[in-house]
Design a protein around this nucleic acid. Structure first.
Lengths: 196, 196
DNA sequence: CGTATGGTGGACCGATCAGTCAATAATTCG
DNA sequence: CGAATTATTGACTGATCGGTCCACCATACG
């Protein structure tokens, strides 16, 4: 029984997320956040709390969204092996390669803040634990389908695939051209995943 | 014919580098830099210019030092294949795993600043180009020694090994425990480098 | 020993930082 | 329609930012 919000919370979170993504957490000022969200300080603070809380919300929005995409990617393909291959190649799936240079918000934030921000570190551990579990599930399915040998440890394999994928993401962030990056991702995928 | 510097430039650069390493570029203030270096503002500005120039100097000091270590690592081992293995395992060579959590200053800086700081991006490209070349040389040597097949492209292999190594570095930054991280690095190394 | 040179430390600057607060506006419910 | 409630806006705060400047001082050279 009062005045309703005049903005869409998710839309604001996405705008704020993009700002943090491009400039990093520390280098983003409240003025930046007001500009990209179109909101005043009072509204931002009223709806999300301070800068740090807002960042964690945006980060969570990001991990939830990309976690959803990941789950879909890993379960939609008919063959699990193809899904794993798509997982490693995901960082170069953007045609222009512009997305590659942006890197991953979770990874960028971890590199920037892991030493000083326990909340971000915890979110990183949570995210990569969950990702490992999802990929490991897919590895088991690939084993069931006869595409991967039975004697490899699914979780260890998942961790190696995740590390390789994050390595690709990082090389993309350095501005490595998309063709070279794609070739590198393929090389890594080929070593882990037979056939093609 | 004037008063000589009362500090060792390299020592200051190392202290400053550690500060940037732990807190990131943006989150490090001039007060922090004065504290860790023991110098006043005037001395810092007189010797190194502004914060950005000082950061680039510290970053260069870091890449030069680790580039030297890398070169030594890749050339000192009797067998090139062992050197390549050591390269992939380097991020977990620290016994306690504390170094692993710190990550790599160049990588952290790239993730934080790649979008906004052309100088850092250029330094990253330069560094990883040089690293690729060094590793590729070592791959050729391993081929000459009969430990790697002749038909693989040395540069492509080097890029894949570098990406895998950076993936390990990143997983270490997320705080993944050192044992799991070591196992992951071994898994990656084993796929690329036969024998042991 | 005096003077020129350049290093040193800290006061100081305007700008910007994150965050607070109160006046105002918009909405719902009685 | 009026009262209660909450969103919105923007002025304001004290702190801190990066950077400048200058008075002071240690040294080297004549």
């Amino acid at each position: 029984m009062a005045r309703p919000r005049q903005f869409d919370e998710d839309q604001v979170l996405r705008a704020v997320r993009d700002q943090f993504w491009d400039a990093g957490y520390t280098a983003t000022s409240l003025e930046d956040l007001m500009r990209v969200s179109g909101l005043g300080k009072g509204s931002l603070y009223g709806a999300f709390g301070d800068k740090h809380q807002l960042f964690l919300r945006a980060l969570r929005e990001y991990t939830d969204t990309s976690g959803g995409h990941l789950r879909e990617m890993l379960t939609s393909a008919p063959r699990a092996l193809d899904a794993l291959r798509a997982f490693v190649l995901a960082p170069v799936s953007d045609p222009g390669g512009t997305a590659a240079q942006r890197g991953c918000l979770m990874a960028n934030s971890t590199c920037e803040l892991a030493t000083t921000d326990p909340d971000v570190l915890a979110e990183a551990r949570r995210t990569y634990e969950a990702t490992t579990a999802l990929v490991a599930e897919c590895v088991v399915r690939a084993q069931d389908e006869g595409d991967l040998p039975r004697d490899v440890d699914p979780v260890a394999t998942a961790r190696a695939l995740l590390a390789a994928q994050q390595g690709i993401v990082f090389m993309g962030r350095t501005g490595l051209d998309i063709d070279t990056l794609t070739a590198t991702a393929r090389t890594l995928a080929d070593r882990f995943l037979p056939d093609a």
